[in-house]
Amino acid sequence: MLLTRDSLPDTISDIAALDDLLCRPSQALVDDLRKVDGDIMILGVAGKMGPTLAGLAKATLPDRRVIGVARFSDGRARAWLDARGIETIACDLLDETAIEALPKVQNIVFMAGRKFGAEGGLSLTWAMNTHVPALIAQAFWESRIVAFSTGCVYPFVPVTGKGADESVPPNPPGEYAQSCVGRERMFEYFSRKFATPGRLFRLNYAIDMRYGVLHDIATKILGGKPIDVSLGHVNFIWQGDASAQALRCLAHCDRPTSPINVSGQDILAVRDLAEKLGARLARKPTIVGTEEPTAWVTDTSQAVSLFGPPVVDTEQLIAWTADWVARSMPSLGKPTKYEVRDGRY
């Protein structure tokens, strides 16, 4: 069954139902990927979002090879992918020889990188976020490359506007975000050198029921913990929509590669989100702090013009999250740290 707004469930019963929903393609995704020749290889597939993207790609293109590459230090991700017909290759992307041995496919989605714990080992953060992209960009110069980046490459912008669009020069706080600028510059440099088509996928907060800004807020409400609204505005997108837009970017690559912002259309107040979640959870949220006039928010007009609005809207995400958290369903245990303003993760 194809994904449409009318087909969305009222509740997501369990992880299996969540995975099935995340990996359900829309007609628009089917149409765009039919324009793209060749197989798809996803580098860094074992992260939070990688299995969703790989599963969605395979569900959309069941007759093509979808290859997932990672170290696979946790075997569960590999088993999940294998069960869905996705080829898996164990590879350390810091090993140039191992990279050269990977199959040369026409479509690369680059998802490798380091964020969580970035401040604990900054040299590794820079190596993963800048050195590895340089290796990949050279090894796959004849492929299309959609490279995951982040809205954190932008400076903070006023929350009264539309957010930072792609014309705003990167100028972020903190070494993690600076290393993400470095990642983009490596792909941009080699795209210019080799005329490699690509996109720099600047994503703000892909969420599912086990992770994300809404999950962070909802769990704090249930736990009676204060919600700091100093960084008081965010935008985010359903992980299934983000994965679909990343795959659709393969049909919308530029020479040289160019950035595209991906998130929800609306800039949302954390205070309002807390109130809505609190009403559904029958708990009054404890709000602390005062909203700053700026935040890390992006203008997604370009993505909307290419792909249309996300299938899953904010109100649906609030309803699903409150229901999931109220039932004490599983969490990935990885806070987004959306409230951080100094770039230290």
Rank of each mutant, 00 (worst) to 15 (best):
M1E: 09
L3D: 08
T4W: 15
D10F: 11
T11K: 15
I12H: 10
A16C: 05
D20N: 12
L21T: 09
S26M: 08
Q27Y: 05
A28P: 02
D31Y: 11
D32A: 09
D32H: 09
L33E: 06
I40V: 12
L43M: 13
A46P: 03
G47M: 03
K58C: 04
L61T: 13
R64G: 04
I67P: 04
G68N: 06
G75N: 14
A77E: 09
A77N: 14
W80R: 15
A83K: 15
I86M: 09
E87C: 00
I89A: 07
T97R: 15
P103G: 12
V105P: 01
N107E: 07
V109E: 05
M111K: 11
M111T: 09
K115P: 03
A118L: 06
E119H: 15
T125V: 05
A134D: 14
L135H: 13
Q138G: 01
Q138P: 05
F140L: 03
F140V: 02
F140A: 07
W141F: 07
V146D: 02
T150W: 09
T150E: 08
Y154K: 06
S167H: 10
V168Y: 14
P169F: 13
P169N: 11
N171Y: 11
P172T: 12
P172D: 12
P173S: 11
P173A: 13
Y176S: 00
C180E: 13
R185E: 05
F194R: 14
F194Y: 15
G198D: 08
F201M: 02
Y205T: 04
L214W: 10
A218G: 05
T219K: 15
I221T: 03
I221C: 02
G223L: 07
G223E: 02
P226W: 15
V229G: 01
L231G: 00
L231D: 08
V234M: 11
N235Y: 06
I237F: 07
I237T: 11
W238H: 14
W238C: 09
L247I: 07
R248Y: 08
A251Q: 11
A251P: 03
P256Y: 12
T257Y: 14
P259A: 12
D266T: 10
D266R: 15
L268P: 00
L277M: 01
R280E: 04
A282V: 07
K284G: 00
P285H: 10
T286C: 02
V288I: 10
V288L: 03
G289E: 10
E291K: 05
E291D: 04
E292S: 13
T294N: 10
V297N: 08
D299R: 09
A303Y: 07
S305T: 10
F307K: 00
F307H: 05
G308W: 13
D313G: 03
E315T: 04
Q316A: 09
L317D: 04
L317G: 02
W320M: 04
W320Q: 12
W324H: 03
V325S: 05
M329Y: 08
P330Y: 10
G333W: 08
P335I: 07
E339M: 02
R341Q: 03
D342I: 00
